[in-house]
Nucleic acid binder design. Structure first.
Lengths: 146, 146
DNA sequence: CCAGATATTTCAGTACACTGAACTAAAATA
DNA sequence: TATTTTAGTTCAGTGTACTGAAATATCTGG
């Protein structure tokens, strides 16, 4: 099972690399997009803090996401200095459409009780990954933390 | 569930990035290491073909893996032009030790039947990911394919 | 034994994302 | 209203991984 986990993560990383190469976005760009997708629209500055990059670098991140048609810049009507970045339509979903469909098809072949077990495991596995990531990251500097 | 898949993959990518930053190896390096781990020792040239890089770039990949203590260069006794690259001990496992332990602990909390279901789903999910990756990659040029 | 083929490394040049600092515009404060 | 602070972009410089070609070492077929 530990081997399976390793293979799964390798396959996931390879997939993300392929998506990135296909769309002209980096791994960081994709993480930023996922962050927006999960959290909702964010200002450029907030995005910078969240992903640990300088504001200058974030401009590049947004440029690439916009060019790939995955996100959109909008002026904040409340504060016209601010730029609000929004994931377009379901830009992420569109890119991942083939994967989502195949995964849905796969999962539908299991009984409802089995699907329950799988979803539960995946949820907890995500927590484990986040915790381990935090453990690795802490101690290293990040520009936002200074 | 499709959202879960997305979150899982995002978490996996973030974890790999953190591991890479920690050890000074790139995502490509990690994929190369996984390839060696799965397939067994490979010559530098074979590695180049498999990961789609020029021989010159592969020299750098192996350099970084060696520097991180994850792989080893050995001359091929059968053909002294060749260099055989081997994953060290369980270098990969050592790096991923924290993750493997946590994942093992997580999975052990399920009944044997449930574990069966999870392992089955993960195995098939890996196949789906590989297939989708292949679909994205084909059509794009790679140095080895030319 | 010699000429060509093959495996890897080295090296110069290129591409690209990041930092840090200067710049522009807009808000907040006095 | 004038000054200071804040948000984002632009830009020069840096680091790093890649390509393509040349160099080195070794194998193989005539």
């Amino acid at each position: 099972m530990s081997d399976l986990g390793r293979e799964l993560s390798t396959a996931v990383v390879a997939y993300h690399e392929a998506v990135g190469a296909h769309l002209g976005v980096t791994a960081v760009d994709q993480r930023a997009l996922a962050l927006i997708g999960r959290h909702g629209p964010l200002s450029a500055g907030d995005l910078a803090k969240r992903i640990g990059l300088t504001p200058g670098a974030v401009t590049g991140v947004i440029d690439r996401l916009e060019r790939a048609g995955l996100a959109r810049r909008d002026p904040d009507p409340e504060d016209r200095r601010r730029v609000v970045v929004t994931a377009i339509g379901d830009g992420f979903g569109r890119v991942f459409a083939g994967l989502s469909a195949a995964m849905g098809e796969l999962t539908s072949r299991y009984s409802p009780e089995q699907q329950e077990v799988i979803a539960d495991w995946v949820t907890r596995a995500i927590d484990v990954l986040r915790e381990q990531t935090r453990r690795l990251t802490e101690g290293s500097e990040s520009p936002g933390t200074r």
